[in-house]
């Protein structure tokens, strides 16, 4: 570095070691617990001495859940959510950052406000909307009975998305953090770029497609991976929106391993399960870490 910074480097090194210990301790504990048997656990409670039941626990998780299918479901939902959120974020942030005009402040405010309230607080009403997405159309059409007057009966469209990939994924897209991040990135793009494009006679859509998207490949990939993982670890909504085993996601499927309130949970088995569902996103992170960090620079330089 610039000057003699060995003392600062030593402090920084100590901070990193502390951080690593902090992050890794819980994960080590998970792995150790997963090696114990239920009987050990009932007798000794938690203990930091590894047992020899890791493979047995894995086998039991495998036989008691339907992980292959549930993992596939998680991948599908994760991919839809990631692609959907990134695509929605691109168009909206493009409109917010690169266009003049009234309303864009409002659009942006509507998007940002959605970050704060979790879906858990709207679970019943969100379910009702998903059970019939055409609900607002019906309401508008039947307001004051004009539809009935014109066509001789109230409008009653039904479009049920429950228990479908769309019904699980789309409500998970109704959250604006991805857009907010992308707006910040777009703002760092030099305006000269777009001005030059206008001089060359490039239209706004061509500019988006030919210039802006290639330029944003890094951030978009990083956001995509990040949103994929965010969808992967969702619990409440996928549990409520899916009824059939054919649509159950991996994190939800693991609840099968939990015991009822009256009983003592089989923690070793649950931790073994947690390892199995955590591995795919963890591998993704470990492999793409550099790309994620570089992509989320939020600055085009």
């Amino acid at each position: 570095m610039i000057e003699n910074t060995s003392s600062i480097d030593r402090v920084a090194g100590a901070i990193l070691i502390a951080g690593l210990l902090f992050v890794l301790t819980p994960l080590v504990f998970v792995v150790i617990t997963a090696t114990q048997s239920y009987e050990d656990f009932l007798r000794n409670n938690f203990s930091l001495i590894p047992g020899g039941h890791f493979l047995d626990n894995m086998r039991e998780v495998w036989s008691r859940t339907d992980l292959p299918r549930q993992t596939l479901n998680s991948i599908i939902v994760g991919a839809i959510v990631a692609a959907g959120r990134v695509a929605l974020a691109v168009t909206t942030s493009y409109a917010v950052v690169f266009f003049a005009g009234r309303g864009r402040g409002l659009v942006y405010a509507l998007v940002v406000a959605s970050i704060m309230l979790p879906l858990e607080l709207m679970i019943i009403t969100a379910y009702q909307v998903t059970a019939n997405v055409a609900l607002p159309l019906n309401v508008v059409a039947n307001l004051g009975g004009w539809w009935g007057a014109l066509f001789g009966g109230p409008l009653d469209l039904r479009w049920n998305l429950l228990d479908s990939y769309a019904g699980i994924s789309i409500p998970l897209m109704a959250q604006g953090s991805c857009t907010m991040i992308l707006v910040q990135f777009f703002r760092t793009i030099p305006p000269q770029l777009a001005r030059a494009a206008i001089v060359d006679g490039v239209g706004p859509l061509r500019f988006l497609w030919d210039i802006l998207l290639p330029l944003s490949k890094g951030p978009l990939t990083a956001l995509g991976i990040y949103m994929f993982i965010s969808a992967w670890i969702q619990y409440m909504w996928p549990l409520v929106a899916a009824s059939s085993p054919a649509r159950t996601m991996a994190v939800v499927g693991l609840t099968r391993l939990q015991e009822d309130a009256d009983r003592i949970p089989d923690f070793p088995l649950q931790m073994a399960g947690a390892i199995l569902v955590t591995l795919p996103p963890l591998i993704l992170i470990a492999l793409f870490q550099r790309r994620i960090v570089r992509g989320l620079t939020l600055s085009e330089k």
């Binding site: 950052v97 690169f98 266009f99 003049a100 005009g101 864009r104 402040g105 777009f186 703002r187 793009i189 305006p191 777009a194 001005r195 206008i198 706004p204 500019f207």
Partner: peptide
């Protein structure tokens, strides 16, 4: 806010 390049 800045940028405001295109008008449509």
């Amino acid at each position: 806010m800045k940028q405001e390049i295109f008008r449509s």
